[in-house]
Structure formats: structure tokens, C-alpha cells
Amino acid sequence: MPQTLLAFLGMMIVSMYSLNTQRYEMLVQNRDIKREMEEMAGSIALETMEIIRTREFDQAVVDSSVTGTLADIALFEFLGTPNQFATGNQCAVFGTGSFDCDDVDDFHEMATATRPFVLGNDTVWFAVDVSVKYVTDALAPAAFATTNKEVQIEVKDWWADGSAFIANPITLTRVLTYEF
């Protein structure tokens, strides 16, 4: 009887040890994959930012109604709060529709874009969301039009079954300034 109990105890201890090792391995695997996803998401965020950065500061610049003076601020789009700009644009550049997102704030709360990270035979898709708001020269949020727009890009991995490795989206923020 004591022999059986000891054997049982031995089996239990080893099983627990083995289970813990497996659990640790799973955690390490998940962490490694998550880090790789985050790396790729960062790259997608940067690329998206560069796309937005090449656009004009405001529709008034596209329409050439600006004069290159402080009076231009009054011409910049501002719809009030909380959404300072129109939302839900389906930007052609991201393939979500046919809207010509030709200035920075056209990307504000746009239809979520899915962008590929292609390398060799592998493709991983990422969901991209953008928000734009005015900030002051001290980079504080502004409830009025200024010469600075803060662009925030959020990226997370996108899978057809709705799962994701990145729990909290990768965020990239830049302030774009109007050039007089």
C-alpha cells in the first residue's frame, strides 16, 4: 500500500511538471508569434502614415483656396466635437471604396482598411484604423481648427475567423503641420 501511494505521488509530481512545461512552451510560442505580429503591424502603421503624410493638409489646399496666411485656418475643415471631420470615408487608396482621400482629415474614422504584409509566399493581413484631430502648438487637443493635425493609426492583425494575436492595437501617432 505505501508503495502504491508513493508511485501514485511520483506519477502526479511528474505529470504536473510535464503539464507546467507544456504550458510554458505554449506561452513562449504565443509570445514569439505576437512579437512578430507586432513588428509587422508597426511596419504597416509606418507605411500607412507615409501614405497619409503625402496628402495635402486640408481640402482647402486641394481646392487652392488658401492664401498662405493665418487666415487659412478659417478655411480648414472643422465640424465641431467629438468628430472634428467627416467620418466613414471609403478611401480608394486602401481599396475600401472609391472616395478620393486627398487630404489628411479624409482618413479620420475611415472604413477599416485591411492591408497585406507580403513577403515571399506568406501574407499576413492587418486591420488599420485612423483618427485625426486638431492639436495646439503645445500638442494639446484643440476644440478648434489649428495648423496642426494629429494623426493616430491603430493596427492589429486580421484573420478571417476573427481571432487576433495582438490584443491591444499597435498605435503610431504623428503631428502633421500646415506649411504656409
Binding site: 510560442q29 508569434i33 512578430e36 513588428e39 509587422m40 511596419s43 509606418l46 507605411e47 507615409e50 515571399g120
Partner: peptide, 24 residues
């Protein structure tokens, strides 16, 4: 670019790491 692991490990989670950057 992608880079492979310096050693072959059959059960390794990461066989390659990927890097990408878009610079203005």
C-alpha cells in the same frame, strides 16, 4: 527582408523573422 534561424530546430515556433519599413 526575412532572416532564417542560425540553427535548424524542427519544432521551433519561429523559423524566420520578418522586417519591413517604409521611409519617406
Amino acid at each position: 527582408f526575412a532572416m532564417v534561424a542560425p540553427y535548424d530546430l524542427e519544432r521551433s515556433t519561429l523559423q524566420q523573422v520578418y522586417y519591413g519599413s517604409t521611409l519617406i
